[in-house]
Write a protein that binds this DNA or RNA. Structure first.
Lengths: 209, 209
DNA sequence: TCTTGTTCTAGAATAATATTCTGTTATTGG
DNA sequence: CCAATAACAGAATATTATTCTAGAACAAGA
């Protein structure tokens, strides 16, 4: 059972709900969201139509529940990641590492979330998503500000930093999850942490100290 | 009418087919693939159920036709992009520029393709997709080999180069297409071309000349 | 120009699927 | 123990995808 679902819906009372979530995720992952029928999920989870609709309202609600549980799990994962970082470079490395490790630890969920952001974004309030996202990036932003002030970080359009930091790693994770490359992202932590740092680091001769 | 569809299905005889493709893409883009019904597309395109199924077989076939037309259009776009590049750095810059410009020129198609790779990958033969992809990256690979030999390019795991080159730009394009950042990617060509080059460039003291 | 086979168009008929509804059974709080 | 609420189940209904049949437009050879 995925830790994300245990976290989102704990207790024996919610066991059936978790069971449905887990089976639905497996189905979505194997066949793609819109190829999966409610009846397939019902059969695989040993549940019933009524139960599924009671818990999730409709198919989109089911997808949204999976997505939001995944988002919360990621957030919890990241919250500990930056714990003891002393410098911006350490923070970036820890961040990239946490990103790659979460994907490798939750491949089905990661694949689903990459492909379904849109589905959920439509149904959920934007504020809710934005709030969670801010929390995810919050700690890193502090380091970034400091780094900018000290000249360690290259001055670039604000809106591009997130892409520069995580884009390469994300692209590789997508490739791995879809089988286009064989090596798990975690084996390239150094590569992607290094690339992220070089993407935002100032040139050597521009640093102040 | 999208150039991609004119290219894929030229001639007056295929006008209806293009019309359906274009309307379907607009519907998919506005409502998400699985929220769109065949009847919506029929109504919007002023066509008929029979016509749609005659041309595309089923809904997935319609999505696949859009995807493959987009892929061919991208490929044609890229084929001219590297034309007069003299060095690996110029090639990387031209490549990133072409990538960003295509996305900005074809936002609906780009959004659709980012979200539907999986849908199509299932239905289409992998060789077909791989062949097209190889062709897309082919010219750039030549430069990469040369750059590696001369020491201009950092030695890294082969499978990571593609992600290092295009990951940041792709991430920003996705963010722009989903409204999370306001500025069109083409206004940050320098940022992303520079980042791509720094991601794969060897450190100054490691170059041979 | 006719005619013959093919492609395109159309919409009614059917099949598959999502969702609602009604009733039953467990669980919790008082 | 007794409501009140949540969970569960599956039949009934509504929505949507797909198939089927048939006519219209078209291309190419006689």
């Amino acid at each position: 059972m995925e830790p994300a679902f245990e976290r989102a819906y704990p207790g024996t009372r919610k066991a059936r709900k978790r069971q449905v979530l887990s089976c639905a995720l497996a189905c979505f992952d194997e066949m793609g969201v819109d190829a999966v029928t409610i009846d397939t999920i019902r059969e695989r989870s040993g549940s019933s139509i009524g139960t599924i609709y009671h818990h999730f309202g409709n198919k989109e609600g089911l997808a949204a529940a999976i997505y939001l549980a995944g988002l919360d799990d990621q957030q919890a994962w990241f919250e500990t990641a930056l714990g003891d970082a002393k410098s911006i470079q350490e923070a970036v490395t820890a961040w990239v590492r946490a990103y790659l490790e979460w994907v490798v630890a939750n491949p089905q969920l990661a694949r689903f979330m990459y492909h379904s952001r849109r589905v959920v974004a439509a149904g959920t309030s934007k504020d809710q998503l934005k709030g969670r996202n801010d929390k995810r990036y919050g700690a890193l932003l502090q380091f970034l500000e400091t780094g900018l002030a000290s000249g360690k970080v290259r001055s670039l359009p604000r809106e591009t930093y997130a892409s520069l930091l995580i884009g390469q790693a994300e692209n590789y994770c997508r490739a791995w999850l879809s089988g286009r490359v064989p090596t798990p992202p975690t084996e390239h932590i150094d590569v992607f942490a290094g690339a992220a740092w070089r993407a935002i680091a100032a040139d050597a001769d521009q640093q102040k100290e």
